[in-house]
Design a protein around this nucleic acid. Structure first.
Lengths: 321, 321
DNA sequence: GATAGGTGTGTAATCGATTAACTACTGCTC
DNA sequence: GAGCAGTAGTTAATCGATTACACACCTATC
């Protein structure tokens, strides 16, 4: 910057003003400065700028698993929305580990992100409190924590799950296997509660960890127990469960009815196509980014609750008639 | 930091020394400083530190599309490897747009990432030159550019593709549809060249853009042209093509043979499971991160060329016998 | 007991921007 | 022509760390 100033025969203050479109400079001075910048190929140092202004134009996003297409899609949407507002997104991968999550959150805070988007790995409010105490804008995404005091953006699957349950019961299923998420995550617990609630005593629950492997194990156990329907509470566990079903040569929906919470582009390609509860992932991501940006700008956004929809495709068999 | 120093009755220099495990401080002083840090909940400002040290402990990763599981997996691997070396990764989404790619690269440079990992959207070397001119360590990933002078990490699919071609020809296919990537990307061109080379005049090529939609369109055109086999050059176009095949009620492999470059966890679940050329994505990501870190540390890593493998699963029909 | 060599800390410059406060100049009014 | 307003640009403090250099003190040595 000093070089540019010298080159243009002005002070660094003037260069800075030109750069930031500030009040003062004469068109003529402006030209000179811009020419010098061009000539020297000068680019301002964002670190120095941020240090001075205490704004990094950066949002942090900590998610559980980038490999999970659900989160990848969310990340993509967040990034899109943020960029359109001139913000960058730094993504942190927590790997469903509370410890790694905390590490990442702290790293991002150390780097002075302007705001933080968090898909908490557990419903323990400790980390959330820590962030709030630091005065950094925080929005929770997809999952919440106990006694959260910050805005939350999530999908509500109750209606869709209730409808799904009603159909299965109506079609005469009496042993229904639920591959649930971890009970210490809000989504894991809530979805399962809704489902078991509307299934009465017909539900048989096995908890997984939102990963493929746990899905196949849970499916194996439930099939051994003689369930006639399987519902996986997230797409990765669904993938695992599907593998197990195939491995045993069971036909969907003839031998077993099947549904997954969370849609994927390849579900319609299966034979039969898989019935799902589809979450509005892109909208969730965008809404979360918008809420966070509002918070960063000093406004107080409301919680956002988008509704998930039941998409019938045939894998439930006669329950869909 | 000043507060901590005051609290511990020392100077900021001493605090800094304690923080960085430097030579000097007495165990006793150390204790006092650490206690003060603890008490005040002090966390150092990474921006200030980076400004001073000119090291951000951050790598930049610019990829074409986070929604493409291939890149998501790579991103994940890069992040993993980087973290294990104490580095953060900032991910930028270029959306297969050269312009957005350039914007992102510049943003990352402005933020003084210690190194940059790039999956170039086109094979135009302009951007790469710009980065190199800035003296920032750069490694290309998956794709290269014309006359690249920096290390490149990629998968070599020639052998697998040649084997695939031989099988199809051997099984008597005489019109083979190739859904190719954009000709202005190195992967798009190379894979197609290898394939058409070994297919002699039997190949019929339609170019897509590595997205699902272009895959279905290309498939439609090729099927209309009467091909008896389809090969998609990336998983998203494969997804699109598969949709088109299904929509027309064609059976694989009976009516049409099918293969995809790039494996996905759900390919084995299709009926029949899809034959693929599997790239070692995780290894690519890790290798790229390692190469970049080597470069950052002043060493000169070699290019890395990992081999992709043909995985036969049944979607080629008699070509697999 | 003066000198040299070590050790542990403090002082202050520095990284590269932003910006409040100030100065210098121009032009206008009475 | 003195006074005032307004404009364009400069000077220097500041953000929060790191670190070269200086300093004070202690111990060995001759």
């Amino acid at each position: 910057m000093k070089d540019v100033a010298q080159h243009a025969g002005v002070s660094t203050a003037t260069v800075s003003r030109v750069l930031n479109g500030h009040a003062a400079p004469t068109p003529e001075t402006r030209e000179r400065v811009l020419a010098a910048i061009e000539e020297l190929g000068y680019r301002p140092n964002a670190l120095a700028r941020s240090l001075r202004t205490t704004s990094t134009q950066t949002l942090g996003l900590v998610i559980s698993d980038l490999l999970n297409p659900f989160f990848a899609e969310i990340a993509r949407a967040v990034e899109d929305e943020a960029r359109s507002h001139g913000y960058c997104v730094v993504i942190g991968n927590a790997d469903e580990s509370a410890e790694q999550e905390a590490t990442y959150v702290r790293t991002l805070l150390d780097r002075r992100v302007d705001g933080l988007l968090l898909c908490p790995a557990t419903d323990d409010p400790g980390l959330v409190r820590e962030v709030s105490a630091g005065g950094v804008p925080l929005v929770l995404l997809d999952r919440t924590v106990r006694g959260a005091t910050c805005p939350v953006v999530r999908a509500d699957g109750s209606e869709a799950l209730t409808a799904l349950a009603r159909r299965l019961v109506g079609a005469g299923h009496s042993r229904i296997g639920v591959i649930a998420g971890p009970p210490n995550t809000s989504t894991g617990r809530e979805r399962t509660d809704v489902l078991t609630g509307s299934l009465g005593g017909l539900a048989q629950v096995v908890h997984g960890d939102f990963r493929q492997e746990s899905g196949s194990q849970a499916a194996a156990k439930l099939i051994d127990d003689g369930v006639t329907a399987l519902i996986a509470m997230d797409n990765l566990m669904g993938l695992g469960a599907l593998g197990e079903v195939r491995a045993r040569g069971l036909r969907i929906p003839h031998d077993i009815a099947f549904a997954v919470f969370d849609d994927q582009p390849w579900f319609p390609l299966l034979d039969p196509p898989i019935t799902v509860v589809a979450q509005p992932t892109v909208e969730m991501g965008r809404a979360a980014a918008r809420s966070l940006l509002a918070l960063v700008e000093g406004r107080q956004p409301d919680d956002v609750r988008l509704t998930a929809k039941l998409v019938l495709r045939g894998s439930l068999g006669e329950a869909e008639l």
